[in-house]
Simulated scan of single mutants.
Amino acid sequence: MADETALKDFPSLFSLKGKVAVVTGGSRGLGLNAASAFLQAGCAQVFITSRKASACDSAVAQLNKLPNLQPGARAISVPADSSTLSGIESLVAQVSQHTDHVDILMANAGATWGAPFDTHPDAAFQKVMDLNVKGVFLCIQKFAPLLQKRATLEDPSRVIITASTAGLGTASLGQAATFGYSASKAAVIHLGRNLAVDLGPRHILVNSICPGFFPTKMANGLLEMTGGLEKHAARNPSRRLGRPEDIAGVVVYLASRAGAHVNGAAIEIDGGSLWNNGEFTLPPDSKL
């Protein structure tokens, strides 16, 4: 009988040593949190992309100052517009100048728009859908040859899509309604499931993460408009909002050997708020 206590090389279970990662929308917020995690977990190269070259350069400078990187490991700036086919093709070309393969693609770039139902702009809805859904599909499609290059049954490549709990329940409604954002995140979660089945035989695993509220540039305006950070933390079953380490832990898990048999999943990172049914409950010692 096999020894059920034996685990193959447990110390390296969460290691990303030598891996190559690309993070779209990686110059700030959750994308930068994830890029930092990939680099500190052992990646040899982490490519940071967003529309603004200066933002990519600034993020890369911060990342390359981290103290506990593998020898020779570095972040690389590759600015591009992930909402258009030409921008994605430019991104793939830039990455290909440095490497002939990619092990981890984090499709994180996204946009939102808040406006009431009756005046919700057509152009805004289209912009959100183009980046959050079509852009994700095209990015995965164009990176697929690089993702397949070194992928094997025992060591598959990974795609991580940044979705949202807004795609699993209702998002912001009323004056700051985010109809396009919520619809786009529901769509991209299901896109990820379809791609997981289609690309799994090519040794490319596709999973989605579904963050709740994290204090980021993208979310802070909505957080303030709907009661502020303290109110949102108080109504969360875990009594706090998300932190960078919460994103880091999940993406390293999905990208490492620890997540090698996870495919088509949508992992909520929200402290349980999705299941709180919108109820605003205060802790006993609250002064709000």
Rank of each mutant, 00 (worst) to 15 (best):
Q126D: 15
H101K: 04
A255C: 04
L282F: 05
A183I: 06
I48K: 00
P237C: 10
I247Q: 08
A219P: 03
D270E: 09
R158M: 13
A123K: 15
H98R: 05
I209C: 07
L146K: 09
P71H: 01
G87Q: 04
L223P: 09
I88M: 07
M129A: 09
A187D: 07
G212D: 02
I209G: 02
V20K: 04
T49S: 02
R28S: 15
A107F: 13
Q94F: 03
K149H: 15
E230H: 10
P211W: 15
R193F: 09
G174A: 01
V197F: 10
L241K: 05
S12G: 06
N263F: 02
V188L: 06
G221K: 07
D130C: 03
T216C: 01
D270F: 02
S12W: 00
Q126V: 10
A35R: 06
L39E: 03
I204H: 08
G200T: 07
P215Y: 00
S96R: 02
L282W: 12
A186T: 00
S27C: 13
V133A: 10
R158Y: 06
V128T: 14
V46P: 01
Q148G: 08
A37R: 02
L205E: 03
S27W: 05
F38R: 06
K8H: 14
D270C: 05
V22N: 11
K127M: 13
L223I: 14
T162V: 11
I204P: 10
T49Q: 00
A176H: 08
E268D: 15
K185W: 01
I189E: 13
G264A: 03
E268R: 00
G72R: 01
S286Y: 06
P284Q: 07
G227A: 12
A123S: 15
V128Y: 12
S15T: 06
L168K: 03
N108S: 03
S58D: 14
T152M: 10
L16S: 14
F125A: 08
H232C: 07
I76A: 01
R150D: 09
S83V: 12
A34Q: 11
E224N: 07
P215F: 07
I189F: 05
N207A: 09
V60C: 14
R235C: 14
D122L: 05
I76K: 03
A37Q: 05
M106H: 02
T112Q: 15
S58L: 14
L191P: 05
N276E: 14
